[in-house]
């Protein structure tokens, strides 16, 4: 990560105003010769045009990588990337992996114990013993 000179004044909350898909680019690499790329080659021919047309907000780049296993790499707005090796996979399995890349936020996987994450202040405030009507004993 680059050094940040200025501290952010506001935190992004995707979806509150506009929704922006976090995945901005997906790189696909294949090999013409190797057998592990057979599914990837079929995917690029058959399923990729439809998937790419359905997601105009994602840039798809396809490039050969000879003598290597096929790989799909998702690049995200937060600067991270998520590579998935798709060797020996069938085209529909690769489609599942691309949907995973599309749905991911790009963040590192974390264990979350609390279901709601909020940056708002407490609605009802902090309880105070010095305010209110008091309790009759």
């Amino acid at each position: 990560m680059a050094v940040k000179a200025l501290k952010a004044v506001s935190q992004g909350r995707n979806g509150v105003g506009a929704f922006i898909l976090q995945c901005k680019r997906i790189d696909l690499h294949y090999c013409d010769w190797a057998g592990s790329s057979r599914g990837m080659n079929g995917f690029i021919k058959s399923l990729l045009p439809k998937f790419a047309a359905a997601h105009p907000q994602i840039e798809f780049t396809i490039s050969p990588r000879p003598a290597k296993h096929p790989v799909a790499i998702g690049h995200y707005i937060n600067g991270r990337s998520k590579p998935i090796c798709v060797r020996n996979m069938e085209p529909y399995e690769i489609l599942k992996k691309l949907e995973l890349l599309r749905d991911a936020s790009g963040e590192k996987l974390k264990k979350v114990t609390k279901p709601v994450r909020s940056i708002n202040e407490s609605v009802r405030g902090i309880w105070s013993p010095y305010h209110g009507n008091g309790m009759q004993l």
Binding site: V16, F19, V112, P115, R117, S118
Partner: peptide
């Protein structure tokens, strides 16, 4: 889930049939 506007909810399951947005 106790929520206010702008909160993020992580459901304990994968909701079928929805896509981002």
């Amino acid at each position: 889930y106790l929520v206010t506007p702008g909160d993020q909810i992580r459901l304990p399951f994968k909701m079928p049939g929805v896509s981002p947005g």
